[in-house]
């Protein structure tokens, strides 16, 4: 029962923050990806950095259970799947989490996104044996450095994983601040506003 209660509290907080940071707004997703408004990019980088520093610092202080980590397997299909998701993300302005939240915020095109998503997930369920047989799904769950007490192997076993996490977290935060609010690749866009 505690688990369900936590799901409600953390889930609701996540949905509300996604909405308030502008991630449920496909205009801001599109403008992040065509590089004309990096508001969301800066927010995402700051979020990853903040989460990373707090989690690894908490682990070093013994306040965060290392066992709560859940590192996904790295395999070729991760990259292929990432490419596919990227195309659909840019075209629709939604990813799975923000699509669900955007539909709840009142966007009807997000409902179409969810319907397509349910069909896409079903198509994957049907074609999974083919991917499995291809060998593109086999790999290993790796962290960059060796995290003390974690069950995962490291890409660079000689590096202390918790320090790596804090340093990278700080780097994400630094990039969030350093990134300009827009990157103009062509002159035409600069005059459009």
């Amino acid at each position: 029962m505690t688990g369900i209660l936590l799901a409600i509290v953390i889930g609701a907080a996540f949905g509300a923050v996604l909405d308030r940071v502008g991630a449920t707004n496909p205009n801001l997703i599109g403008k992040m990806l065509n590089l004309t408004n990096l508001h969301l990019m800066k927010a995402i980088l700051l979020a990853i950095g903040t989460g990373s520093v707090l989690m690894f610092a908490g682990q070093m202080l013994g306040l965060v259970e290392v066992g709560h980590m859940s590192v996904k397997t790295a395999y070729v299909g991760v990259f292929i799947g990432g490419l596919m998701l990227g195309v659909g993300w840019a075209a629709s302005g939604f990813c799975p989490g923000t699509g669900v939240a955007a539909a709840a915020s009142g966007r009807r095109d997000a409902l179409m996104f969810i319907a397509g998503g349910l069909l896409g997930a079903a198509a994957y369920m049907a074609t999974y044996p083919m991917w499995k047989a291809s060998g593109l799904l086999s790999g290993k769950a790796l962290t960059l450095g060796a995290v003390p007490g974690a069950k995962y192997d490291a890409l660079f076993p000689s590096l202390p994983g918790d320090i790596v996490g804090i340093v990278l977290g700080a780097a994400f935060i630094a990039v969030a601040f350093a990134l300009p609010s827009r990157l103009d690749l062509g002159g035409q866009k600069a005059t459009a506003t």
């Binding site: 596919m84 998701l85 075209a91 629709s92 179409m112 998503g117 896409g120």
Partner: peptide, 9 residues
């Protein structure tokens, strides 16, 4: 269609 390839991917 975007939803379809996003979730398949």
């Amino acid at each position: 269609l975007g939803g379809f390839i996003v979730l398949y991917g």
